[in-house]
């Protein structure tokens, strides 16, 4: 009987983990896309645009992700907009992710020597062309390791979506605990699943970082 409920718990958690993975992927990919747009605004040299991004980053980095989720889920309902837990979670995580990625990437762009900007300017490339052909290819190499590293934060961040009722692995754990009263087993398995998702990514990030250092 004990074994049976173990497998029931475990298989249900694994099924819910699909939603954790999917939410992470969506947050990471759409957060990355928004992040790229923000990066262009931030490094464009147009003061108003750069300021907009600075404030955006401060807001999303300077408030708890949980509050951002609450505001999106409960807050927009006040304006008559109904967001499903799924949409609210995806949106909040996207905005939150983009605010961190744009800062990581800005650091990488700024580590490209000024001479690269000057040389490409002198060749009559405009800002977007410079980014596309000269700056980003060099910044990307440096960006890979911290970006992969940050993906771990995104996965862990999805756990908060459980609070607004989105059934990913943490929420599934809570529900299974309520049904089985085996908190230690349930949450150990939940933790194990997060670890299994995150550990390979942090290892990969470390390896990439190491390789970059050797290349220097």
């Amino acid at each position: 009987m004990a074994d049976f409920s173990f497998w029931v718990i475990f298989s249900n958690l694994l099924l819910a983990a699909r939603w954790t993975v999917l939410l992470s992927l969506i947050a990471f990919i759409s957060g990355g896309l928004v992040g790229v747009v923000l990066l262009f605004l931030r490094t464009s040299g147009v003061k108003a645009l750069a300021w907009f991004v600075r404030i955006y980053v401060e807001v999303f980095q300077g408030t708890p992700l949980l509050m951002q989720l609450f505001l999106l889920f409960f807050g927009v309902a006040l304006f008559g907009i109904e967001l499903s837990p799924w949409a609210a979670a995806a949106l909040a995580l996207t905005l939150w992710t983009s605010a961190f990625l744009v800062e990581i990437w800005r650091g990488c762009v700024e580590s490209v020597p000024k001479g690269q900007w000057e040389a490409s300017s002198s060749l009559a490339l405009n800002y977007v062309e410079q980014m596309r052909y000269v700056i980003l290819p060099q910044a990307l190499r440096i960006a890979v390791a911290p970006t992969v590293g940050f993906s771990v934060q995104v996965i862990k961040g999805t756990a908060l979506a459980s609070i607004i009722g989105f059934v990913e692995v943490t929420k599934a754990g809570t529900m299974l605990n309520n049904a089985t009263f085996r908190p230690f087993l349930v949450y150990s398995l939940v933790a194990l699943i997060y670890f299994a998702l995150c550990f390979p990514l942090s290892m990969l990030a470390k390896k990439l970082e190491g390789r970059l250092n050797v290349a220097r």
């Binding site: 020597p113 001479g115 690269q116 000057e118 040389a119 490409s120 300017s121 002198s122 060749l123 009559a124 000269v134 290819p137 060099q138 190499r141």
Partner: peptide, 17 residues
């Protein structure tokens, strides 16, 4: 303007990639 003016720098500034 820059299509008409070339520039060469002390530090070369070649694109390393």
């Amino acid at each position: 303007l820059r299509r008409k003016v070339g520039m060469v720098f002390q530090q070369f500034n070649l694109f390393p990639h």
